[in-house]
């Protein structure tokens, strides 16, 4: 059921919002951040379905303003399904012992990897952290050094300073420990 936007906005603006557990209502003009007796406004709103096929809903934000949460067309969803089931092969699966050196070697060569994404960096650093934890300092070093090289160009406005510091820390400690115990 598709309703006209103007119709919906007007119906929403006149909506009475029931407060939790009581039959009383507050008017939409009440600011969401007002406090009553030192307590934040606990008013409830119900999302209004605009399009029951796409999941488009009208909600009220914490600021009190209304916001349309855009729906998802059948085509858009189909594309997500394709990505999810075919490309991503479902959710990320990480079995025990799954972080292997040979996989890292392949991944580090993958030019399509976007190191600007935190999740990508986090995934790659996991190899170094795992070897560090396992006290396999040779492998930790082998992983940390190329990662530092890959990460450095993305340190815009010092935003990934901590990540770089960790890599440098692992490199420094691994080198020191390898000097003491070369077998590791």
């Amino acid at each position: 059921m598709l309703r006209r936007m103007s119709e919906l906005v007007s119906s929403f603006s006149g909506l009475h919002i029931a407060s939790a557990g009581s039959k009383s209502v507050v008017t939409p003009s009440d600011n969401a951040d007002l406090t009553k007796g030192g307590r934040r406004n606990q008013a409830l709103t119900k999302p209004i379905t605009i399009d029951s096929n796409t999941g488009e809903v009208l909600v009220r934000k914490t600021t009190g303003k209304t916001k349309v949460r855009r729906g998802q067309s059948a085509e858009e969803y189909k594309e997500q399904l394709r990505q999810y089931f075919l490309e991503e092969k479902g959710p990320t699966r990480t079995e025990e012992d799954a972080l292997k050196m040979e996989d890292f070697d392949l991944l580090i060569e993958d030019e399509s990897f976007d190191y600007a994404l935190k999740q990508v960096r986090q995934k790659m650093v996991s190899y170094a952290q795992k070897y560090y934890y396992e006290r396999d300092y040779m492998k930790c070093l082998k992983v940390s050094e190329p990662l530092l090289h890959k990460f450095e160009p993305f340190n815009k406005k010092n935003k990934i300073r901590r990540e770089l510091e960790e890599l440098r820390y692992m490199i420094e400690k691994s080198k020191a420990r390898l000097e003491l115990q070369p077998s590791r």
Partner: peptide, 20 residues
């Protein structure tokens, strides 16, 4: 749900699992 069905990055961040 809204994020999960629309965004691959959200899926990667939100749901990781294993056989066990």
């Amino acid at each position: 749900a809204r994020e999960f069905v629309r965004n691959g990055h959200a899926r990667m961040a939100d749901f990781t699992t294993c056989d066990e």
